[in-house]
Design a protein around this nucleic acid. Structure first.
Length: 572
RNA sequence: CGGGGAGUGGCUCAGCCUGGUAGAGCACUUGGUUCGGGACCAAGGGGUCGCAGGUUCAAAUCCUGUCUCCCCGACCA
């Protein structure tokens, strides 16, 4: 590409970050002139951002094509029928932007494209001989997020690479899924991201198995549990852990009710005169799952994970019951709740307490608790075992004898084995080798394009600005003139021409500005290489070469810079 | 949606409590002096104080309503 002249370019850098930016990537993207905000979770992408995003998209394309995926471009405006057919018109709830056309017909803006791609497969694919098919697109998605935040990390309109695989059977799906997984690893690595692939919760996508690609950063909103010893890594929405076996002393032979006036917390029951340790208590939490009450039981010192409860109940939406709803469900108020002999609503019990005896729990009668609770005898006759608790750092790895680490992470990609969920609801089938009509086995695979940019900045920045990975920087090199002398400008022009001829993308900062301004802008934008043309070096026929990531400045003969930069760009 | 905060030139903010003439720094224009890490001097341009209604002789300031944005909790790329 031809070099861009800074004096003519629209690169509105700012000395100060807007006050409403809190995370590093947001502040820097605004300050460095990449984005401007149009509304909550809606951004303008200026030329620098477009250049970086185009590079990211190109990397994604190359890796998709490498595994045989074919690029499509589908509409963002969808008629409601397909969504009604799959059942997700209702499932997506308020997260979906909905609109009506002039005739009053229902439409929505696409949040994802399973329905649309599946409809194409349904209409066009007839035989197993046409499979596998792997289709993808890079396109805008719209989600009416409850709370957009953190600049580009959580927005309402964003670009997604979404891919879909269509196979005759599970074995085919396993292969397609594995291809995508490997392509994802290449994509994120090429974009300069350190990431972990973790076992994940499938949410509203459905399906049997999914992996998220997570970038470890405090700007992220997910929690990942990972074992440093083996490869175990999972979103805490599905992660489990190995807990130490707690010995139970023999307690009362039968349930025994005791008065606990005014005791409504785990902590209060731990204090004298009761002295019941939190790990000896059962915590009973009342939730409403798709409008129906459910009871979740974990150990007193554990936290319930709502995503796990959602998985256990199979509900689309779970929420805590309000204090005023609880008495009608349980017959007692929060603080005295328990699930012993409770059958008025489904009861789910975390496996970590399955074998416990001599436990204490609320008696479902205000001011009373049970002691001598045997979980199998008293709860599991009517209750079901289900993973419910949130894992915590320091707990044992479920796969080896290591200890789990828990950290914040940002999701940049997610791959799903969908199975036949969509092909069944939308009736997409083919004839298999035996001539039987079988539903197509599907997978779906997403990457948040702008999130890659933001994640790269979260990972690579310093006090002066962005430190761009070369592969996704808007320009490879910035050439700065440090003076107005004609011979200096002439030399800089030569350098720029040589670089451009060598295939290096250059921002030529020939503005009539003081050197300090140019240095500051170059650091802020984070060009991987800065080439400064000044009087000092020029006297020896040299220019200054500096990598954004380092401190060292070296003098390079004018005739050699282009080759040096080209080698760097080529990864040599 | 629940809780907290904020809307005043392009940006960062002051002024509001205690109504009376709309301010500063940065940015922008012109001229001059500067010129290797966000220069200096001088002169300028630019704001219906989010919007609507009310109180008042008079509202950025007080009252009511409303919209928008940010942050903390339930969702996802």
């Amino acid at each position: 590409m031809p070099a861009v002249r800074a004096s003519k370019a629209f690169i509105p850098t700012l000395k100060e970050a807007p006050t409403d930016a809190t995370v590093a990537s947001h502040k820097l993207l605004v300050r460095a002139g990449f984005v401007r905000q149009l509304g909550a979770g809606i951004y303008d992408y200026l030329p620098l951002a477009r250049r970086s995003l185009t590079r990211i998209e190109q990397i994604i394309r190359e890796e998709m094509e490498a595994i045989g995926a074919q690029e499509f471009y589908l509409p963002a405006l969808h008629p409601a029928d397909l969504w009604k057919e799959s059942g997700r018109w209702d499932v997506m709830g308020d997260n979906m932007f909905r609109l009506k056309d002039r005739k009053g017909g229902d439409y929505c803006l696409g949040m994802t494209h399973e329905e649309i791609f599946t409809a194409i497969a349904r209409d066009e694919l007839r035989s197993y001989r046409q499979l596998p098919q792997v289709w993808y697109q890079i396109q805008s998605k719209f989600r009416d997020e409850p709370r957009p935040k953190s600049g580009l990390l959580r927005v309402r309109q964003f670009t997604m690479k979404d891919a879909y695989s269509f196979d005759v059977d599970r074995a085919g799906l396993d292969k397609s899924y594995e291809d995508q997984r490997q392509a994802y690893q290449k994509i994120f690595t090429r974009c300069g991201l350190d990431f972990v692939a973790v076992q994940a919760h499938s949410g509203s996508m459905g399906g049997s198995e999914s992996s998220e690609f997570m970038v470890r950063t405090d700007a992220g909103e997910d929690l990942v549990a990972a074992c440093p010893k083996c490869r175990y890594a999972a979103n805490t929405e599905t992660a489990t852990s190995r807990l130490e076996q707690l010995p139970d002393q023999p307690g009362p032979p039968a349930l025994e009710k005791f008065a606990t006036p005014g005791v409504v917390t785990i902590e209060a029951l731990q204090r004298q005169p009761y002295g019941v340790g939190a790990r000896r208590q059962l915590k009973s939490l009342i939730y409403v799952a798709d409008g129906k009450p459910v009871v979740a039981v974990v150990r007193g010192d554990q936290e319930l994970n709502e995503a796990k409860l959602q998985t256990a109940t199979g509900a689309v939406e779970v929420r805590p019951a309000r204090a005023d709803e609880i008495p009608a469900i349980m017959g007692a108020s929060a603080g005295s709740l328990g699930a012993v002999s409770f059958t008025a609503a489904p009861v789910f019990v975390d496996p970590s307490v399955a074998d416990r005896t001599n436990m204490v729990t609320g008696a479902n009668e205000d001011g009373f608790h049970w002691k001598g609770v045997d979980v199998r005898r008293d709860l599991l006759v009517h209750g079901k075992l289900a993973e419910l608790r949130s894992v915590k750092a320091g707990e044992g790895c479920p796969r080896c004898d290591g200890t789990l680490d828990v950290f914040k992470a940002l999701e940049v990609g997610h791959i799903f084995k969908l199975g036949t969920k969509y092909s069944e609801s939308l009736k997409a089938s083919v004839l298999d080798a035996s001539g039987a009509q079988v539903p197509i086995v599907m997978g779906s695979y997403g990457i948040g394009v702008e999130r890659i940019l933001a994640a790269a900045i979260e990972l690579h920045h310093d006090a002066d600005g962005i430190v761009f990975p070369l592969a996704i920087a808007p320009f490879h090199v910035a050439v700065l003139t440090l003076g107005k002398e004609p011979e200096l400008v002439e030399a800089a022009e030569q350098v720029v021409a040589a670089l451009t001829a060598a295939g290096v993308d250059v921002l030529f900062d020939e503005r009539d500005e003081r050197p300090g301004v140019k240095f500051k802008d170059a650091d802020l934008i984070g060009h991987p290489v800065r080439i400064a043309v000044g009087k000092k070096g020029l006297a020896e026929g040299k220019v200054e070469w500096k990598l954004r990531g380092g401190k060292e400045v070296t003098l390079v003969p004018i005739g050699e810079v282009a080759a040096k930069a080209a080698a760097l760009v080529a990864g040599r």
